[in-house]
Write a protein that binds this DNA or RNA. Structure first.
Lengths: 155, 155
DNA sequence: GCGACATGGATGTCGTGTCATATAGTGACG
DNA sequence: CGTCACTATATGACACGACATCCATGTCGC
């Protein structure tokens, strides 16, 4: 198997397993990983439009995340309000309930990250790998979303 | 953003973008990436049971891939036959049409891997990253599937 | 032999992800 | 002022991916 092919499959495998772990951790909160990502984005930012969220989302890189937001709205976690200036746009922000849940989401994610660090990564150095993957991703929308998020706010 | 979190998002981002590229390359053949993975597995192996395929699949790591195989059967690419010894089991193998398509799949994947190497990776060294990711994945079913595939046959 | 348990697979359900298309609102240019 | 391209969002369609459940079959103990 060529190195590029193995890398592709490794990335696929780790994404799948990571997502399964995260989904399991989030299940008690009633959120999926994608929903948690939206909640996390809104938690530390002023009201955003759908496209604004889309530019910060790693999942769902291209299209605007109307359907994920739909669920969050009907779950009472996100408020969706029109803007008078541009009536096409909607502005999304967390409700009080959403803000409360966002804190628990942050705790859960923190716990998972610490557990991964302790049980999986151990004392292996990962900086080189992170740096390489960052460069590989930097040309794609999803990679740029990560950079924007690091630059923007806490999450 | 903590390193582990960034790693998780980078893996997610690269998986998404890689999948989109692969899906686009495979679209002319009428196959999705998941379907192409099954076809590639069957191309170089004796007839396998559903669980046998499942152990080699990186996507769909846990459950048996009945539905993906369903599609391939109704597309005329895979033959599904019962075994007399254990009547619960089915044995899956490529039809002639499937075998022909498998060659084109291999060409497409090869082309993509070469393009990725040329345009994305360039002369960056990736062995260290591959090695680290391999170790991280080695405890999970999906990671073990990759190892099994490398040991088993060409693909 | 038979009954408990295990195994292989099929299927229902839910939530994405992706693409294509539709709809409404905006702005610019003549 | 009309129209025409563009933008923000919504929606339909399709295939996954994960989980749970169900059914048929096989196995093992007694």
């Amino acid at each position: 198997m060529k190195a590029v092919e193995e890398l592709r499959y490794l990335v696929l495998a780790l994404q799948r397993e990571g997502n399964r772990l995260l989904a399991a951790s989030l299940r008690p909160l009633g959120l999926t990983p994608a929903q948690a990502e939206v909640v996390g984005i809104l938690a530390t930012r002023p009201p955003l439009s759908l496209n604004g969220i889309g530019e910060l989302l790693v999942c769902e890189s291209g299209t605007s995340p109307s359907r994920i937001v739909d669920r969050l709205v009907s779950a009472g976690l996100v408020r969706r309000e029109g803007t008078p200036a541009d009536r096409r746009q909607v502005l999304l922000s967390l409700t009080d309930q959403g803000r409360a849940l966002a804190e628990r989401v942050a705790e859960v994610e923190d716990g998972l990250h610490q557990a991964l660090l302790k049980n999986l990564i151990g004392d292996r150095p990962i900086d080189g790998t992170v740096e390489l993957l960052r460069e590989l991703a930097s040309g794609f929308p999803a990679g740029q979303a990560i950079q924007r998020r690091k630059g923007g706010a806490a999450n």
